[in-house]
Design a protein around this nucleic acid. Structure first.
Lengths: 359, 359
DNA sequence: GAGAGAGATGTTTACGTAAACATCGGGGCG
DNA sequence: CGCCCCGATGTTTACGTAAACATCTCTCTC
């Protein structure tokens, strides 16, 4: 009857469009469609969609009704193209193996969502210079306005970090020097508290089971451990190294257990501490009676270790939150002062530390 | 002569454009810019950019040179708009707290990157129907072509999962029924192997420390545990429940330790098993001499527990890979047969299981 | 040597949104 | 009573890319 089947007024174009649309499996409705249904111009739809003032209440209601009827969703690609921003933050990270990274990532995702931003993951398979550089160059064609880097490794030399222009960067837990803003856990503070706790208990000195070479966090902890011992006038025993894994902690632990004069160990993370506990147990050295152990991170499981682990609590959530806050701030005002924000840590004393056994 | 330096034929527009561009803080170069420098049309640039054939080698080289000179990066928003796809996969997940989710996510990110897709995170703060529904509706305006759901919870009723059209979905580790494709670990198989292992060792029956109610994975494990016991003609002891955390495993463990005739426990995940081990230890019951313990997941730390934990190994990486493969396949061919893909598990026998102590 | 065909390149157009500018009533004020 | 301004809405245009179509130049064949 009426226009339903094309009155051939200007049928060619209209029909072509319809056909194409149908072929493209129920494409979602566009502003133009909503506008047609609501009997207004697409610009008015845009204004409603973006909550702009200056739209009559009655009109607004009609538009909203039309949107609902058609199930209209703004096309974010078109939006991004027009606005020149994606409302997306990229996170470059090497693996999600370490608890810390994951918790930070989670906090980032939550904070970002809260600010109306999405988070895109940029995994780096192997932490080599080339891989990292690759991730950064892929980044160029990626739909992100800003990037948060959680590579704790020492791979961020100046040449590597060449960002496309107007992409803001914040680096977590690393030493991006003065090129970028950094959010870091107070590694040094936490370490010194831990070492002091052991010394205060009466231990003559404190051994250290360190993280892998090349890790910034590991190095900071090692440096602070040594500094605190020296400040207390003690000599630092030789360094023992692991690779963050419980397994490596176990192997290192077997060596440590063989040292009769070792009464206290500061371990660079909780996983390795777990392995160390096992090694000490198997070697017949009791914790904390024979050896005191302190970890780092305070993973949820730490309170269930045998014995429950004294450890340094890190606030990963806060780190993530600050990273997001930092990027957003940088995006708003193109400010370029670089600095480091420190997130405090605190010592959680459980049952793996005690005064040395009287001899 | 030619148009090369704008013979003031139409200078106004050109200049306006240049000015605007400069004002917009070094906007990156567009195809048109590259085309101008290379002395070709933008379409040719497009062809080079997309690796299409039919471009003269010499021309291609010039275009590539121009791209390099200008630091050209394709604008992904424009691309997405034109192509109607974002080359992005969204992952809806509740928290990243459980190891499994994280490992799966990591595998998803890696596989996706390998296929040229990005991964966007859609965190769900609290696993309530409303929250989940909210995440799904936000999804509508999100730049994703497909969605992978890793909510292991029973919150995926039909009404909740209303996807925008043409967005493909794959569900990991849950029971999306026949609405969506599902990739799931072979919970039942793993569980039955674990229970059988304990029965084969000579235990009269096997207790079960289950995961929280409402968790699909937990329920599957519980069902299979009961089924396997019945199949062997044993009676199933009363269920003990935790919430996946080591802490909850400890509390449940204290109760279990008080049961003198309990000689074998199948625990629904490794974290709870850790707590259980601690509770048993503190209660003076030795593992595996007094009580055998089997976990589920095979987290990296499991081999460092005291004693090293016998557990069911899950291949999270494979699950993630299959999820990506699944969504991509669905995107290519609009196939709509729904089914479940099972990823096998295997029992890893360590030191926490042994025959019951002879009485 | 004329026509066909293939390869190389240019031109037009559309994707969906939103800024900028244009239009159109009507109410207040001199 | 006429002018100006303001609120509400419509029209034009541009964002950067790529499909579709157009053109143009060779070369090969009969």
């Amino acid at each position: 009857m009426d226009t339903a089947d094309g009155t051939s007024a200007e049928p060619a174009r209209a029909r072509a469009r319809t056909r194409k649309r149908a072929a493209r499996r129920t494409q979602s409705a566009s502003m133009a469609d909503v506008a047609r249904v609501a009997g207004v111009s697409s610009q008015t739809v845009s204004r409603v969609s973006n909550g702009f003032p200056g739209v009559n209440e009655e009109t607004r209601r009609q538009v909203l009704a039309a949107m609902k009827e058609l199930g209209y969703r703004p096309n974010s690609a078109a939006r991004a193209l027009k606005r020149g921003e994606f409302r997306t933050i990229g996170v470059i990270t090497f693996g999600l193996s370490t608890t810390g990274n994951v918790r930070t990532l989670e906090a980032i995702a939550t904070s970002a969502a809260h600010e109306g931003y999405s988070v895109t993951l940029l995994p780096v398979a192997v932490p080599t210079q080339d891989e990292v550089r690759g991730a950064f160059s892929r980044l160029g064609e990626l739909a992100v306005d800003a990037v948060i880097v959680i590579l704790e490794v020492h791979l961020l030399d100046a040449s590597t970090l060449s960002m496309p222009p107007h992409v803001q960067v914040v680096v977590a837990d690393s030493d991006a020097g003065d090129r970028y803003n950094v959010v870091d856990t107070d590694q040094a503070g936490g370490t010194r508290t831990a070492v002091r706790h052991l010394l205060d208990l009466g231990h003559r000195t404190v051994w250290h089971l360190a993280g892998p070479e090349g890790s910034y966090a590991a190095q900071r902890r090692t440096d602070a451990w040594r500094a605190e011992l020296l400040a207390a006038g003690r000599t630092a025993p030789p360094l023992v190294r692991g690779d963050w894994s419980a397994e490596s902690g176990y192997h290192a632990g077997l060596r440590i257990a063989a040292l009769p004069d070792c009464t206290a160990v500061f371990v660079a993370n909780d996983q390795m501490a777990l392995g160390l506990l096992r090694a000490l147990h198997e070697s017949g050295r009791e914790v904390p009676e024979d050896v005191s152990v302190i970890g780092f991170d305070d993973i949820p499981e730490a309170s269930s270790f045998l014995p429950p682990l004294t450890t340094v609590h890190q606030d990963f959530a806060e780190v993530g939150r600050l990273c997001v806050e930092g990027v957003l701030r940088q995006m708003r005002q193109d400010a370029t002062e670089h600095g480091t924000t420190l997130v405090p840590t605190r010592l959680v004393v459980r049952d793996s530390t005690a005064p040395p056994r009287a001899r």
